[in-house]
Design a protein around this nucleic acid. Sequence first.
DNA 1: GATGAATGAGCGTTCATTCAT
DNA 2: CATGAATGAACGCTCATTCAT
Lengths: 191, 191, 191, 191
Amino acid sequence: MEKADKRCAIIRAALELVAEHGFHGAPMSMVSEKAGVAAGTIYCYFDNKETLIRETYGYLEGRIVETVTKRYPGDRPVRERFLHVGEALIRYYIGSPLEFRFLEQFHNSPFGVEHRRDKFMGKRGGCDIFRELFEEGVSQQVMKDLPLVILFALSFGPILTVVRDHVLGFVILDNTLISRTLEACWDGIRR
Amino acid sequence: MEKADKRCAIIRAALELVAEHGFHGAPMSMVSEKAGVAAGTIYCYFDNKETLIRETYGYLEGRIVETVTKRYPGDRPVRERFLHVGEALIRYYIGSPLEFRFLEQFHNSPFGVEHRRDKFMGKRGGCDIFRELFEEGVSQQVMKDLPLVILFALSFGPILTVVRDHVLGFVILDNTLISRTLEACWDGIRR
Amino acid sequence: MEKADKRCAIIRAALELVAEHGFHGAPMSMVSEKAGVAAGTIYCYFDNKETLIRETYGYLEGRIVETVTKRYPGDRPVRERFLHVGEALIRYYIGSPLEFRFLEQFHNSPFGVEHRRDKFMGKRGGCDIFRELFEEGVSQQVMKDLPLVILFALSFGPILTVVRDHVLGFVILDNTLISRTLEACWDGIRR
Amino acid sequence: MEKADKRCAIIRAALELVAEHGFHGAPMSMVSEKAGVAAGTIYCYFDNKETLIRETYGYLEGRIVETVTKRYPGDRPVRERFLHVGEALIRYYIGSPLEFRFLEQFHNSPFGVEHRRDKFMGKRGGCDIFRELFEEGVSQQVMKDLPLVILFALSFGPILTVVRDHVLGFVILDNTLISRTLEACWDGIRR
DNA sequence: GATGAATGAGCGTTCATTCAT
DNA sequence: CATGAATGAACGCTCATTCAT
């Protein structure tokens, strides 16, 4: 196995175990077993468990930014861009339920809170696209004049909840349901 | 100390510790210490840690139902009832950040998922009032004709997100912001 | 087994294992096994390994002070008192080779150095009797006018070395050899 | 890099790390890093960690013998030779605190004890010069008629202790203090 | 019922050593 | 010879749970 492959296998294993059982239900011994490496090998690639989880998160974040950015209609109206972003997110999450569950676990851990705070406090990351979109929406007066945080909540709150319900089998998000849900979100934030 | 008091003290201690440090940051020994009882005593009242956490959750659920039900304007229009429920929830959570944090921890644990599944699959609980409200909203054609799960997501997704942001200090929810947020939620679900 | 007995058994086990194999050759698992308790039990009595070792040291220090103090001829000339102290030390160490080895290990560990520094810097302990003796010796002009540290080295350096040689079997310290060695030490420090 | 250079670099690295952090604070990986070689390379030169430490000790022993032997006034009286040896040792140790700390660590490890035993039991090493000096001192009746081991203890016990105190900063050994200390040692062993 | 000392499986992590390159 | 990624046994320590009192 190549070096990069091994690193990747460890991240995959961590991803899956954390997604299924949470941070504390994913002992390093289990991660190493699932990745097919020895216990100590993980520490050749990651300083400690926290770092492993953070880097797994970073890896996912990259993929999501990629997903959302791809074919982003930067020159279309705000509404259309919003719907694009929402749909990209929902489709990505639905297609990668493990990733989705991992992200939920991460966001709900101390790391996640800290991470959000950092990002919020200015150290931007891939979220700039969201910020720009909403700021433009407000300044063009097509969105309600609410704090960004509230607009985010009105948009991503339902999206994440809806995806969770889908992943848990409480609803099946087909194409029409996805678009109707996103339209409803738009109704929530639009003027 | 009375028997009921002791039981209650244990639940309070569990609540606070889980809220502050998460499930795995709340060892039984710490719970017993905070509750002012011996380590073994907890097991006189609860079979094991899982049960303790579940019952703590049940206790909170009861209080929330109480909160939402109190002064519930059952004879007023759907919109008004929705706003009442939403405001009751937000105010309760904001006034009881510990409870809110506990609930978030619980919902994001394996227990939480299982719990939601049980409730969804028919074993109702205190959520009937929500269900009734939304079913009526749909049948009266004042709400969008979407699955209940989606309407829940459009309503409680933003509410919980917004409260979390408040608790973490990313925004301050004053009276006007609360009502404007709830109006926006209503825009999302109304026809 | 009584509570105090268990604590004592753990200290004995730590003492023996550290004496024989050094700090790092005395894993907690071995200590617990030797003490006849479970691994976790040690932590009911001591915060961590460091504390266990420190308290073991403290226990020994107490016994030594006791030994040296007992029948200490406080009203006799400095020389006589010096010989009493030296002989008490040598006899104690020879009679308790395990204790002696432990002390050597301790003194040579980071803890030991720190401990000496603390004591030296003013936080006195049981060594006051030594300090008094030597200060009086200097002021009465029966000892050389050298810094206390040097006088200590001239006295305890040989004593500890000689005991070590005895314990390792390089020499057998009988009564005459003990007293002749102490006389030689006295020759080293006396005016 | 030459083969001999590499070997030497490894020994230097081991020496420094053991001196600073003790045997167990000097992992092979750290030694290799400090020496500027790969982890596995050490095993081209030394069978295992124990061997590395032993050979590091041997290297130091050689340097010390060299130091003590240089300008050794073999034709001068015993007293003078003793003072030369003592001063050479003290000056060497003080000038090479790392070496001194390593030696202390070594002497206090299981290896050290075994090493002393071997040497004592006949497999002589560089200590012959000491042995000769003291044997001559005794036979000329300028030294006390005590076993060699005791005379060694009376000489080197204080010397090592005094140097340790200097290295730890408890005293500063200037020229006069060195010579006065050595005179005191001589008082201890002389007739 | 209540206690809390005791348990021991399991955790995250380290590091001497190996071996394919 | 030299490399350094990989190994896995062993470490110190935690904590849910038990049970004699």
